[in-house]
Amino acid sequence: MDSEFFNWGDTVTADPKEYITLMPGKYTGKVTKIEKQRCESNGKMNGCPLAKITLEVEHEGSKAYVSDNLFLARSREWRIAQFLHAFGLKEKGEPVKVEKILDSMGRFCTITVFCQSGKDENYRTYTPEEAEYNAEHGIDVYNKIKSFEPLSETVSETSDDSEFGF
Rank of each mutant, 00 (worst) to 15 (best):
I20G: 00
F83Y: 15
S75P: 00
C39M: 09
P128A: 01
I101C: 02
F114R: 10
E94L: 05
I34C: 01
G43P: 01
D15K: 15
I53R: 01
A86R: 06
I34L: 05
N7R: 15
Q82K: 13
G165L: 04
L151V: 01
D15R: 14
E56N: 06
G43I: 05
I139M: 05
E94V: 14
K144H: 12
L22M: 05
R76S: 12
S75T: 10
L151K: 07
V66I: 15
Q82G: 08
L89Q: 01
G88L: 06
W8C: 06
F83S: 01
V31Y: 03
G29C: 04
T21G: 01
L70M: 05
G118W: 04
C48T: 14
I53N: 00
C109W: 03
D10N: 11
G118H: 03
E94P: 01
G118M: 07
E163T: 10
K97G: 10
V155H: 04
D68Y: 13
E136K: 15
P95R: 03
V12D: 05
S3F: 15
T112A: 09
S156P: 02
K26R: 12
L72S: 00
E35N: 11
M1T: 11
F71M: 08
K90C: 06
Y126P: 02
V96M: 01
R124K: 14
E136I: 05
A131V: 08
W8L: 15
T158G: 02
L102P: 02
L50M: 15
E121W: 10
S162C: 03
K92E: 09
S3H: 13
F71G: 03
I111P: 01
I111M: 02
K144Y: 13
I34S: 00
S152I: 09
G106L: 09
E40D: 14
Q37F: 04
R74N: 11
L102F: 14
V66R: 07
Y19M: 10
S147R: 13
P150H: 03
S104G: 08
N69T: 10
T54S: 08
I53V: 11
C115W: 03
T11Q: 13
M23I: 14
A86H: 05
E149A: 11
S75K: 08
K52Y: 07
S62L: 07
V98K: 09
R79I: 12
N42M: 11
W78Y: 14
L22E: 02
L72D: 07
S117Q: 13
Y133A: 03
Y126Q: 01
W78Q: 07
T21E: 07
T11M: 13
E121L: 13
G88F: 07
A51Q: 01
V141P: 01
K144S: 13
